[in-house]
């Protein structure tokens, strides 16, 4: 299978503190990966560093996307290559409508003008698919949105921008059961054999309707176990305690 993302021996600092301590990960096209782990393990750091959030510094290791080393690329350049992240707490941007924002992003990413009619039709249909009120397309980006609406809006952007790799950073956290189902539906609508999905989560609800290829356990800045989808169920039942001990013993 064709390689999409390859992370080699990645070390990352937040300020002076080392968060990721030699992380390796490979995602091929067509695959769905899940990263689970206790709070503070470095899950969100991983998501953010793949998009070069300036709050984090890569000290060692490589991030390779479609066989190209992207260590030195800016956030927008990485986005244009096809990497997308659904934010844990998306920013509120007053005065810019959802519709105009997505349109601008699409123009920036595709580097060609969008066909307005087609775009609007597509946007409205996608919003309906995600059980979103179509009127939200004219509202200011994330301003006054509930937690659920913000997360759905992230999934909407993912579907509209059609990235090659979608990273979902705890998109399910804080959502009710119906909203989680909608997010899963969105992932299924998005996912195909040519793209990849990386889901960072605490729970298994979001995975219920998805085919998961790999589950990774991230503890203390390293992936300490990788297995198939059943590992998620195991974690759900038993928690991370066993893995912490494993680490302590090892």
């Amino acid at each position: 299978m064709e390689n999409l993302l390859k992370i080699k021996d990645l070390h990352v600092n937040a300020g002076e503190k080392e968060i990721l301590k030699g992380l390796n990960l490979q995602i091929n096209k067509g695959e769905v990966h899940v990263i689970m782990g206790p709070n503070g393990a470095g899950k969100s750091t991983l998501a953010n560093v793949i998009l070069n959030n300036p709050e984090y510094t890569r000290t060692e290791g490589d991030i390779i996307f479609e066989n190209e080393n992207i260590n030195d690329l800016r956030t927008d350049e990485r986005a244009k290559k096809g990497i997308f992240m659904s934010f844990q707490s998306p920013e509120e941007i007053p005065g810019i409508s959802v519709q105009n924002f997505i349109k601008s992003a699409k123009v920036a990413k595709d580097e060609k003008p969008v066909r307005i009619f087609e775009f609007k039709k597509n946007l409205e249909q996608t919003m309906k698919d995600l059980n979103m009120n179509v009127e939200y397309s004219n509202r200011d980006l994330n301003v006054g949105f509930s937690g659920g609406e913000k997360k759905k809006n992230e999934i909407l952007q993912m579907l509209m921008l059609e990235p090659k790799l979608a990273i979902l950073d705890e998109t399910d956290s804080g959502l009710d059961v119906d909203a989680i189902k909608t997010v899963s539906k969105g992932i299924n609508m998005y996912h195909n054999e040519n793209n990849g999905v990386l889901i960072i989560t605490h729970g298994t609800k979001i995975l219920e309707n998805l085919h998961v290829d790999y589950v990774h356990i991230l503890v203390n800045g390293k992936i300490i176990k990788t297995a198939d989808g059943s590992l998620a169920q195991e974690i759900e039942k038993q928690g991370y305690e066993a893995y912490r001990e494993e680490k302590a013993n090892g």
Binding site: T75, D76, E91, A105
Partner: peptide, 10 residues
């Protein structure tokens, strides 16, 4: 960062 992550330059 949020806007740049969607492909917009700084």
């Amino acid at each position: 960062f949020y806007l740049m992550s969607r492909g917009l330059s700084e």
